[in-house]
Computed example of a mutant assay.
Amino acid sequence: MSRIIRTDANPVLSKALEYHGFVYTQGVVASDPSQDITAQTKDVLAQIDSLLEIHGTDNTRLLQAHIWLKNMADREAMNKVWTAWLPEGAAPVRACVQAVLADPGYLVEIMITACR
């Protein structure tokens, strides 16, 4: 049976999970929801970098991204941070939708699937 590696699991979720060389992150939100969309996106991506590093991979190995925005009007600002973070030619498949997030202060939530 293949081993499932869970990172920082609690009764509700794991921050990341690795199975068969694939790494799945939780939906990552900003540590400080009082910040603007640019700062929140930078924080979320830094957290994703840390989770991927724990599992021996990085943003050059992204396969899929799900992005939820509180307000689609923030898409352009979020995309500026997103594209600066992505290595050239390494964009994953992606969905980006507007949604009601768990806390009204959260402006963006990102979930990643990557491989090792």
Rank of each mutant, 00 (worst) to 15 (best):
S2W: 09
R3N: 14
I4K: 12
I4G: 01
I4D: 06
I4E: 05
D8R: 07
A9G: 13
A9Y: 08
A9V: 08
A9T: 13
N10K: 15
N10L: 14
N10S: 14
L13G: 10
S14R: 14
A16F: 09
Y24A: 12
T25I: 04
T25S: 12
T25H: 04
Q26P: 06
V28I: 15
A30T: 09
A30K: 06
D32C: 13
D32P: 02
P33A: 09
P33R: 12
A39P: 02
A39C: 11
Q40M: 05
K42T: 09
V44C: 09
V44P: 03
L45Y: 03
L45N: 00
I48H: 00
E53F: 04
I54S: 01
I54V: 09
H55I: 02
T60A: 06
L62F: 03
L62N: 02
Q64N: 04
H66K: 07
L69F: 01
M72C: 01
R75M: 12
E76L: 08
A77I: 01
M78K: 02
K80I: 07
V81L: 09
W82R: 00
W85L: 02
P87E: 11
A90E: 11
A90G: 00
R94A: 10
C96Q: 13
Q98S: 10
Q98K: 05
Q98N: 06
A99H: 14
A99V: 02
V100E: 11
P104Q: 15
Y106M: 09
Y106T: 02
L107A: 10
L107I: 03
V108N: 11
V108I: 13
V108L: 10
E109Q: 11
M111V: 11
I112M: 13
T113P: 01
T113E: 11
A114T: 09
C115Q: 06
